[in-house]
Design a binder for these strands. Structure first.
Lengths: 341, 341
DNA sequence: TTGAAAGCGCTAACAG
DNA sequence: CTGTTAGCGCTTTCAA
């Protein structure tokens, strides 16, 4: 029974009058709170459905001082990485009555500040946001909000409240160790130029540290701007190999451009992983069907989302040190030589 | 100046007391409404910043009966398609003061109903949702909401209020025409099995209609479940070609599995587009760097998002017939033979 | 240009 | 188990 189009939004009072039950009891029925007799409940539900009543959470939130929203602030949706994190978050929030609300910053600190301001003005139950680097004002706002704040995807730095993520410095360092162990020595890096992609920056930092332990330095770098695509990976790889033809390894700042690089090398008939080795970062399985599998590091995206959601929902309690550091796991693929010996 | 952590959320009254200005005037300053003397404005802003005050939109929304939120309901975030649509929406909403709020249904009508209920309970300014197929209850809710409702990405069917999208029947039919014109005759289809992916279903419908115009029927079909990846595309292509080795064309329900199919055929050393032709759907440029470009249809994702956002924000007015049908454009790529003659 | 009063639609707290 | 009362923190409306 489809009701006629409403001209004035319906209120509890309408349901109350239609059912002959007090507003308070109607409210109880609709929220499954407190004890209500089956008969009354029935009357209320029938009336509410017949009218097509939808509760007003604005009023409810104001009255109860509780809002079932969790603010989730991320840099981008097209990055492949973030949908996975969001998947983990919503999976874990699903049975808690909490709802994620997504805000996108486009890697701009100013935009992040605006988005946070906007979201906090809805008085959410908690905040999950990517990264540790935020404007002074943003930190102050979060501090002041008095709600749980979980910074995700990075644990290399000072947090506001609680951190969940991997150490990108460590991920970079470990990749360097693997590469060196496999005997590669003339190493190039292809990555984003965005100064605001702090995680990529830290990865490179750790990578160079790892190389330095064996006295190796990066031989060439190639930077790009904007989003990552196979095509961009191809172009950059071609460019870096033109400039430095004798490189024997390329470390890419993510799997998508890494895959582009892989395709380029295959096109050129290069021997992988003999003549040249390749590695990306993230561990996205979307690309699993490539001719050969790219070596990479699993950034534990879904787990990061889950753990963060468990914290804001109160399912988990933050550890003493307020840091949950997950282990970035190396996925060898087919583009790194076996360790000799 | 970072204020000390708040134990009680700050209110207008706090700012009012700190600045010696009435609550009402503080409210005016913070919203840039009405005339306020420069001196007063200054006092207020200083106090607000010093305290770290963040307005309470819950209270504001209740009082003003206006909420700057636009509900956006989509089936999935991992589909590559939807981030593009969202990009169009937020680009167009950016200068309107409206904020998109994203809800994800996982292609489940029941979940869609819940998500809508939840979002409508926040009394958003408008709703943008994917597809035309919704539960009775969902349609009733939307009808009743009294706010603009824009259904996107499909124009083949009855809408609730306004439609923006492409005709998938037409997209399928036109692809069939191109394929037949190029001389292919033994045609297979690889697609999702999800009964809830109505757009894929309509595409196939149109495709078969288009084939039938020339007396051609699909020779084989291969269905899969779950998300799309290169690997799945490879597997399905291998399977369908094993069952029906003499197919000379494969139509995929999206670019990602189409690209997987492409890689499989290349692996097998098949002559593309001579021995076999291939086409996908969507026109995602993420995959542009493949060895050869997959033929596809551009689904106009960003435009769809933009037009929908223009409608809910009032920048555009809906046409008389309440339908904005964009043209799905054919992108030939390298995987369809040139039309002979 | 500023302020005072009333109330948005709901729920907490209490009473019965 | 059900109802009454009093706000939640803002903005609308009206008056000064």
């Amino acid at each position: 029974m489809i009701p006629t189009r409403a001209r004035r939004p319906l209120t509890l009072r309408d349901v109350s009058e239609a059912s002959g039950v007090s507003e308070m009891t109607v409210s109880r029925v609709l929220r499954n709170r407190g004890d209500v007799s089956a008969a009354t409940r029935e009357k209320v539900l029938t009336a509410a459905k017949a009218l097509g009543y939808v509760p007003n959470k604005i009023a409810g939130g104001l009255a109860s001082q509780r809002v079932n929203l969790v603010a989730v602030v991320i840099p981008s949706l097209s990055n492949l990485v973030f949908p996975d994190v969001l998947g983990g978050i919503s999976a874990e929030l699903d049975d808690t009555g909490l709802q994620p609300v997504i805000g996108v910053t486009n890697y701009s600190p100013a935009r992040e500040e605006m988005v946070l301001y906007d979201m906090l003005s809805w008085r959410p139950t908690g905040v999950i946001l990517a990264g540790l680097e935020h404007s002074r004002a943003a930190r102050a706002m979060l501090q002041n909000s008095g709600i749980p704040v979980v910074e995700i995807m990075d644990v290399d730095g000072e947090g506001i409240d609680t951190l969940v993520g991997i150490s990108h410095i460590r991920a970079g360092r470990e990749m360097a160790a693997r590469i060196l162990a496999a005997g590669y020595r003339r190493i190039g890096f292809v990555g984003t130029h965005m100064p605001e992609d702090h995680r990529a920056r830290k990865r490179l930092l750790g990578f160079e540290e790892g190389l330095a332990l064996e006295g190796v330095q990066l031989e060439a770098r190639e930077y790009y701007q904007g989003g990552s695509s196979l095509l961009k990976g191809r172009e950059l790889t071609e460019r870096i190999l033109t400039r430095a033809p004798d490189l024997d390894f390329l470390y890419f700042s993510n799997d998508m451009i890494g895959a582009g690089g892989l395709l380029h090398c295959l096109d050129k008939g290069m021997d992988i992983p003999g003549r040249i080795g390749l590695a990306g970062f993230n561990g996205v399985d979307l690309l699993d069907g490539l001719p050969i599998r790219l070596a990479t590091t699993d950034a534990r995206r879904v787990d990061v989302g889950r753990r963060a959601a468990r914290l804001v929902s109160g399912k988990d309690v933050a550890p003493e040190n307020r840091i949950i550091a997950l282990t970035p796991t190396f996925l060898p693929g087919d583009t790194i030589r076996a360790v000799p010996g």
